[in-house]
Simulated assay, not measured.
Amino acid sequence: MVGFLKIRENIWYEAIISAMADEKPYFTPLGFRVVNNVVKLRVYSSAKTSSLLAMNSEVVLNITDDPFLYFLSTFKEETGGIPKEEVGFIEGLPVLLKAYGYVIMRKKKVSQQERVVLFEYDIEKIIDNPSFYTSIEPYSRCRTFLIEMIIYASKIRDVSILPGTGDLLNSFKKSFDYSYEIVAKTCMGQAEIWLANRLKEMVSDWLRK
């Protein structure tokens, strides 16, 4: 793997996966790990992402820790998704222009595991984004826990409409609230505070329904 991007084996990472859907770029966050140089993704079989991955032989992992990109790609209906001006293309595949780099992958194997589908990919190439060669920030608890808030907010949104999930919702809400506390202590920028409060409003709305 040439370049500054380093992806270690057997560690769960978060990225934003991208592919074409109905001739339009589609982005959504997804956890992944690499085992023996094979990328493994687990997706609920009922999710739109599962159908999208099934239809596309090549997809891209956009490597980023930008919470705003995770927010826009997670809550597409609420936000309108990723703006067109922030989307580029590499070899015909959509990518985020603000990502640190890109993992271009080709589908190798698909297997059903109860309610989830396991997708396995060979890594075709890893491409660094030269825009970030000199502008990578140190580790930030602010950004990390904003992304945690987004992850748990999406879980609350999806589970809140299901019957008999009170205990699970309480668990997700507890993790969401803890992440918010960390964000409130570590994020000093107005944009980050706005995002945290917006997520809190969205979660409150879903829990009231």
Rank of each mutant, 00 (worst) to 15 (best):
S160K: 03
Q113R: 09
D65T: 11
T165K: 13
V43H: 03
R8W: 13
N36D: 08
S175L: 08
I63Y: 06
L52E: 07
G189K: 12
V59E: 12
F4C: 06
Y133Q: 02
R106F: 00
M149I: 01
D177V: 04
S179N: 05
L96C: 05
Q112D: 14
L69S: 08
L96Q: 06
N37I: 01
L118C: 02
P94L: 09
D167F: 00
Q190R: 13
I126Y: 00
S57N: 15
A19C: 15
Y121S: 10
Q112C: 02
V39T: 07
N10A: 06
A196I: 03
K173T: 03
K109W: 10
K107L: 03
C187E: 07
Y26L: 05
I17S: 08
L69E: 11
R42E: 05
K6I: 10
K200Q: 12
S73Q: 04
I63M: 10
Y102Q: 08
G92S: 10
K107T: 07
I147D: 00
N62K: 07
I127R: 10
K200L: 11
P94H: 11
G166Y: 01
F4R: 15
F32R: 05
L146W: 04
Y121I: 13
I104V: 15
K76S: 10
N36V: 00
L97E: 15
S111F: 09
Q190L: 15
D66G: 01
V87E: 06
G31N: 12
S50H: 08
E9L: 09
M105K: 05
V159I: 11
E192Y: 12
F145I: 03
G3L: 14
I90R: 14
S57C: 14
F4V: 08
E23Q: 14
S45E: 13
Y180N: 08
A54M: 14
S175Y: 05
S51C: 04
S18N: 05
I82R: 06
P130N: 05
T186F: 06
F145H: 11
D158F: 01
N170E: 11
K48T: 04
M55H: 14
M188G: 14
M105E: 13
I123M: 08
T64I: 12
S175G: 02
G101Q: 08
S160D: 01
G189R: 13
V110N: 01
F71W: 13
I136W: 04
N170W: 00
E124Y: 02
F119V: 09
N129V: 02
L195M: 08
F132D: 01
T134K: 12
F176E: 03
P25Q: 09
G164Y: 00
M149L: 08
G3P: 13
